[in-house]
Write a protein that binds this DNA or RNA. Structure first.
Lengths: 108, 108
DNA sequence: TTTTAGTACTATGTATTGCAAAGTACTAAA
DNA sequence: TTTAGTACTTTGCAATACATAGTACTAAAA
């Protein structure tokens, strides 16, 4: 039982919300997403990100298209489906309830 | 991929923090803990709570004593160790960083 | 006295996902 | 042709929330 493990456990379930939020604001490819998360001091690893994007795509929350890049391999740009937008709103509510609950409990 | 599962995943890692916070404020037994969490709109099941308390005890974050109850079986009252207090402070920082990161990212 | 009900705690199997690591593929530069 | 950087894929493992089945204690009811 150590802090790194707990950090990892705390991240579970939260990354879906973060990723959908980023893509909701505009089409993005994985490196964009990593960058935006890093800017918010959130760390996500490729081994997490790619399977998660795949799961979201398979669940019809996201669609993607291939875009040739200037100098390098093609990139997969993701965007939100209507189903994804609905799910995002549920996630937003879920997060807010959880965060409020925790803060209520721990800040007294 | 549905909201209930994501809620469950979001809870991972957070309950340690909540439980230590409750016990930090004063000695408590499991039903006390369930009650305080419910008051904060956080739901924890016995299958989660008891093993978690055991893990925290085994990691020397908590100690406990048995207390006879007025009408019913004896109760296990938990309290925080010094190691638990230190760990709590790390958890508090971890939670604040995570919550700030998520809110920064999703509220823009 | 025995049985029932309520309370308290224990143990275990399952599903899910973050993490780590190994790998493939594309493009441009050396 | 080889190397380096970028982009994506796959898979196995560890940890924990959840569900469930069970044991144990005490008081009240039968």
């Amino acid at each position: 039982m150590n802090i790194e493990n707990t950090q990892s456990q705390m991240r579970k379930g939260i990354f879906e919300f973060c990723i959908l939020s980023i893509i909701r604001r505009g089409e993005a490819y994985p490196s964009d997403i990593v960058e935006e998360m890093r800017n918010a001091n959130l760390q996500i690893f490729e081994g997490t990100l790619y399977p998660l994007l795949t799961r979201l795509k398979n669940s019809e929350m996201l669609t993607y298209r291939w875009v040739e890049s200037n100098s390098g391999p093609p990139r997969k740009y993701f965007s939100l489906t209507e189903k994804g937008e609905t799910f995002y709103q549920e996630l937003e509510q879920t997060w807010n309830e959880l965060a409020n609950g925790v803060n209520t409990l721990t800040k007294k």
